[in-house]
């Protein structure tokens, strides 16, 4: 019976404890809220934010570095391409210069050859003319000498006339 009595008070909330719990709990909620939870939660939040910031900054730095690296690579590639281009251009220029020079040299050589040929032809003609003149002179001298010899006596002159007369056929 006594136990029954106790049991009843076990599940029967006492007014005193309800009153004090309400009072103390509300007071505790207010005091902790103001002097503990607010600064603690703010500090935790600030720290989380600072960690987040640090992480995102590090992330950004890493990204920047990667970008920089890729930029560098790009620049390197570009430089390499530029160099190749330059070399190609130089080679082309060299080739063209050489080709032109060759061309010019050929043309000069051709001109020189042509001049030389012309000169040779001229010299040849002159030489032939001279030769002809010499031949004529020589012929005349020979003819003179022959004539002199042929006409050295009367008989001979008569023989000749007769000969010539023979040839002249008076028809």
């Amino acid at each position: 019976m006594q136990h029954l009595f106790i049991l009843a008070s076990l599940i029967e909330p006492g007014i005193g404890l309800i009153f004090w719990t309400t009072l103390v709990f509300l007071l505790l909620l207010f005091l902790l809220g103001k002097y503990a939870w607010k600064p603690i939660l703010e500090a935790i939040k600030t720290r989380e934010e600072s960690i987040q910031n640090a992480l995102s900054t590090a992330d950004k730095a890493l990204k920047d570095m990667r970008e920089l690296k890729s930029n560098n690579e790009k620049i390197l590639i570009e430089a390499r391409a530029e160099r190749d281009n330059l070399l190609k251009d130089a080679r082309e220029t060299k080739d063209s210069i050489v080709a032109e020079a060759k061309h010019k040299a050929q043309a000069e050589a051709d001109r020189i050859m042509a001049t030389a040929r012309e000169q040779i032809a001229n010299e040849k003609n002159a030489a032939i003319g001279e030769l002809k003149k010499q031949v004529a002179v020589l012929s005349i001298e020979i003819a003179e000498k022959i004539l002199k010899a042929e006409l050295s006596s009367d008989e001979k002159q008569k023989a000749l006339v007769s000969n010539l007369m023979k040839d002249v056929n008076l028809n």
Partner: peptide
């Protein structure tokens, strides 16, 4: 009578609240 005593439970409630604070 209405009992608003500082009973053992109330005392512990207060002590624990002070401890928490």
């Amino acid at each position: 009578p209405l009992d608003f005593s500082i009973t053992k439970n109330v005392a512990q409630l207060m002590l624990s609240s002070i401890a928490l604070f």
